[in-house]
Design a protein around this nucleic acid. Sequence first.
DNA 1: CTGTTAGCGCGTTCAA
DNA 2: TTGAACGCGCTAACAG
Lengths: 355, 355
Amino acid sequence: MRTSSPSHPVRLEDVARRVGVSASTASRALNGLGELSDDTRAAVLRAARELNYRPSRVARSLRTRVTMTIGLVVPTISHPFYGAVTHGAQSVLDRDGYSVVLVDSGDDPAAVMRAIEVLLSHEVDGLLVCTAPLGGGAGGRSLVELAARRPCVFIDEVAPGAGVGDVVLDNGVGVSMLVDHLVEHGHSRIGYVGGPEDRTSGLERRRGFFDAAARHRLPALDGAVREGVWTVGSGFEQGACLLTLPQPPTAIVTASAELALGVLAAARRLRIRVPDELALVCFDDPFFAPLLEPSLTCVAYDTRAIGAEGARLLLAAIEGRSNQASETRVPVHLVKRRSCGCRYDPAFEVAELLS
Amino acid sequence: MRTSSPSHPVRLEDVARRVGVSASTASRALNGLGELSDDTRAAVLRAARELNYRPSRVARSLRTRVTMTIGLVVPTISHPFYGAVTHGAQSVLDRDGYSVVLVDSGDDPAAVMRAIEVLLSHEVDGLLVCTAPLGGGAGGRSLVELAARRPCVFIDEVAPGAGVGDVVLDNGVGVSMLVDHLVEHGHSRIGYVGGPEDRTSGLERRRGFFDAAARHRLPALDGAVREGVWTVGSGFEQGACLLTLPQPPTAIVTASAELALGVLAAARRLRIRVPDELALVCFDDPFFAPLLEPSLTCVAYDTRAIGAEGARLLLAAIEGRSNQASETRVPVHLVKRRSCGCRYDPAFEVAELLS
DNA sequence: CTGTTAGCGCGTTCAA
DNA sequence: TTGAACGCGCTAACAG
């Protein structure tokens, strides 16, 4: 049985009375505003500390129309990518006194909408959205409208015309690096396993593959560019298809780590040795990549920086420091290990683990 | 340049005026309270929809002293464990209309305190804390005080005397299962690599190891029980120590997946074959465990269920349905793969991947 | 430099 | 069944 203790045991008025000043003076002292004598200010601060005064944020928010909260929408917080994005964003926001209201919406566009609605109803000062249907569709329109109610930054997703900016990985460049490297190893029959193409990352990575293939004038292989979902199981299925083709590719690029794991499993099942009979490389650099057998050659990037940069963009817009929408591309780089056919430096291997 | 649009374009009063009733009547209609005629209620609801009315949660919160938010404190949101806990908690809370305010505090007790302070200042209705110094210390006391201001459930941490409950893994049972299984394989020289023992999981897992070792009357090996931190690098270091002992163990239990990966790397570096020369098993079942070479025998559990159960406990306390603190233990189970020396069923292997 | 007043938007008395 | 009045706790406008 809980005793119904008041949520605000000590109010500003209590502090003021204790010192013998008005509430507005106490408010000024605590917020460091206005001009007032040093001794009353000190007295108020002391009284506040003695009484263990904590301002009510909701009362303050009602008055100032500022909640000091940011809404964050992610499709799957349990995925390390979004976890790291969240970490990066949260640390930047926290430094500026903002708190994060998190909604794990899943991928369904309708759920994303509901998530944004909920966040707006909490009167968040801004929105960080890590998933969104691409513009143009029915969902796209209303998303634009929703996002217009508050400053909004899209992460890992370009949303032309909506929001105050977006921060996206250099998807095309990353996949190009992977293809280039396979070509350096002498491959020309290269397959690709991608993700859903209704979203930026799936779309841009596949485009990156086609661009690189065209640049190197690689032969177009029948059925060697496949689209799956972002899971190990899907990678296994698509990989098995690719590897049982009449003329299977000698190398495969995947659009994510999970897809690569699936392809690796498929190769093992078919007794195809990696990298001797099949080179395998992927976008994403999971922390266990050096420990796979063979260790996985990857395109790596700073996931936390994505969230941090998104948060910075958003804060700039909220605080009026930014005037126009901006698109930030986060750089990626190639990490050569053994699955591509490279020899792996044992010293580097250990260094990677200890980092 | 942002136009300073009012954050609440349409207020309850606007809806009321449109229908021609008082604000209090409109409030009653929208909240389904009081007794009022069906037609006015319908008219109010329609007007609210037409005007696209959204109640101001902060105004409501100021009045009702309920914010419909729950504070969640995690040490590292980018770790899949806390990501999954968050996912589980969020989905349960969302179903009941609560939103999650997330703070990624890190491990430092002082930072955890600050996180809780921030959440309390936002007047969250309850707290879910995934990390906490064990009671007794200086931090323990003030934590108890902090947690007393709002219903609080501890996750993955027992906090005797604080909060309305906790939900914790069956740590001891899990480690016992691992030891039992190694003994079945004929091992008696078993080493252990654990995590920091200032927290529940590190402590209980090590105790579980000692209990199981005593039960099986295993010989006590000098320096074969080691304490590290929860990283791959630490596992590597501790594993290397263990494996270069004059009489190294023939099997190693680790308290986490990261530690196991480190030990695996150390074994490879020392050219010790797993499982032929060293059996290796661990607490935690990461999704890539089946794809390691050899695939890793683990203690698995439902991570999301931990968060979900914590949320349920908290909601029960908030809504007054629960009367006393309760401790929930989440069951664990053994997943046999190849690193322990078992033969791995290929059919099972594929089934695991596709799940 | 300080006090008084008013009101953010809502829910909940009390009275009709 | 409905309306008028009040106040949650705070900050901003205006006076002094």
